[in-house]
């Protein structure tokens, strides 16, 4: 559980492989009973052509190009629904080659004071090194990457920045990145990883976030 409630948050599941964008239309999703018919009818379709499809529902944005497929939500009530949508889609399109996946979280936390805001920056990026050469050194962006501990191929990358949406606030992005060695047809491996790693990915992200924000 997150110790602090984010002011804004969202997730995206991003898959990298070989896709046929034209399949990914709202009508297809509703025909396969993956979304409601009324949602498909009310979808805000940005573009549909052989190279790219983008549409939005109230709680979802889907973006598909030849090499990338993204499911995005900014409403945490729908996190598991988005995961299920992704799982359902590629259980049906099981021959789609997918080699990489990111389970990505983006969060903005409002700090209670400027002092608290600076304290987080100082914690993740101590200024002792910089203060010798830079006046009023401050964190603009920090990205740090760690190897996976679950035996899977990939990495976990964390980015910390001052928030541009809430002030004083901290923006944290966690990119839980998976890769497979499969070079053939199919997405069973990566979809199984999504299914089995989801809870673990969230638990790990919460630990990382709580550690970053536990400045006191």
């Amino acid at each position: 559980m997150l110790a602090d409630q984010p002011a804004i948050q969202g997730i995206s599941i991003v898959l990298v492989g070989d896709f046929n964008p034209k399949i990914f239309q709202p009508a297809w999703f509703s025909a396969e009973n993956l979304i409601r018919v009324t949602e498909a009818e009310a979808a805000d379709i940005k573009i549909i052509n052989p190279e790219i499809v983008i549409f939005k529902l109230d709680w979802l944005e889907v973006q598909v190009t030849r090499d990338r497929c993204s499911f995005i939500t900014t409403q945490d009530a729908y996190y598991e629904v988005v995961r299920d949508l992704c799982l359902g889609t590629f259980k049906l399109l099981k021959h789609t080659p997918i080699q990489k996946m990111g389970i990505n979280m983006d969060l903005h936390f409002k700090m209670r004071s400027i002092e608290e805001w600076h304290a987080v920056g100082h914690k993740v990026a101590p200024k002792e090194l910089w203060n010798k050469t830079l006046k009023n050194a401050g964190l603009r962006s920090l990205t740090i990457e760690g190897v996976r501990e679950d035996g899977l191929k990939g990495y976990i990358r964390v980015k910390v920045e001052p928030s541009r949406r809430v002030h004083p606030g901290i923006y944290i992005q966690i990119n839980d990145h998976y890769e497979t060695d499969d070079s053939g047809i199919g997405c069973e491996t990566i979809i199984n990883i999504l299914d089995l790693s989801w809870n673990r990915s969230f638990d790990k992200s919460e630990i990382i976030i709580n550690d970053i924000l536990s400045w006191r």
Binding site: S12, V14, K46, I47, I54, Q63, T65, S70, R157, H177
Partner: peptide, 12 residues
């Protein structure tokens, strides 16, 4: 990396 959901402009 791989994590860049694309953002389409809305004036078609």
């Amino acid at each position: 990396g791989l994590d860049a959901p694309i953002q389409l402009v809305t004036d078609f």
